[in-house]
Amino acid sequence: MPLVIKLLAQRIALGLILLFLVSGLIFAGTIILPGDVAQSILGQSATPEALANLRAELGLNEPALQRYLSWLGGLVQGDLGTALTSGRDIGESISQRLSNTLFLAFWAAIVAVPLAIFLGLLAVRFRERWPDKAISGVTLASISIPEFLIGYVLMFFFGVKLGWFYPTATAFRPDAALFDKLESIALPVATLTLVVLAHMMRMTRAAILNVMQSAYIETAELKGLNGLQVIVRHALPNAIAPIVNVVMLNLAYLVVGVVVIEVVFVYPGMGQYLVDSVSKRDVPVVQACGIIFAAVYIGMNMIADIVSILSNPRLRHPK
């Protein structure tokens, strides 16, 4: 079997094992959390008898291992279980919200990734001169400000004062036309872009600068190529692996980390759903959200690994 296939198979198997371990962690984590769903459903009207009845009904008295195994069995078959508070199927409730979150993350990525790489290239081209310093300064400032604050500042100026965009995402309807949907998420996308830009841009800059020390860059310069040709043709292809790594980490963050942004802009995504369920102690929903977030993270990092394996010419074209 070629080495590449073997390496890729290893990565994928590792990803699955990791996901399995994480499922155990999530389950254990939600069990040791304080609070009790029966208590929070019944609220102040809870009598000891009513509590005991509800617990038995919800299956909370079964041993933890048995509950974990039946949960895992459901997961493998694509059944995320039933929400304790509403009694609705979690899979159904989540699917619409997950697609909303992915929609937001997707457009943020479409803006942020090319922009970050372009700014990184630009910073290398004009390194140690004012464009480099300006790019570094602005992106560093934007990553240093808490994301909810950036969200409110953008909302205040562009939504309220200038009135260019919708201040919140309440106008968002999943079945609206694409342009209308984009218009309603302009500010959350801008906020997310500002948050993830600096990290990706700085990594691009560092990875390419590292490659710029190589002897083959001198060869390219002595061929009479101009600065940008040298960077794009000769440096970038050798800096792909670290750049993809940081891009994937940030994409995972875009999906998982939007909780705060969704709450700030009142966007009907996974984040809001998760926050609601935590406050209601709806453990199955929290577990389902947790496992989906974990799958996104592991999946993105697996893709990054696979791309770095494939970007290595020594592995792609063995002797």
Binding site: A215, Y216, E218, T219, N238, S311, P313
Partner: peptide
């Protein structure tokens, strides 16, 4: 220009 180390002077990618 022909450099000392062709191995380093060719772009590996």
């Amino acid at each position: 220009y022909v450099s000392q180390s062709a191995a380093a002077s060719f772009n590996p990618a």
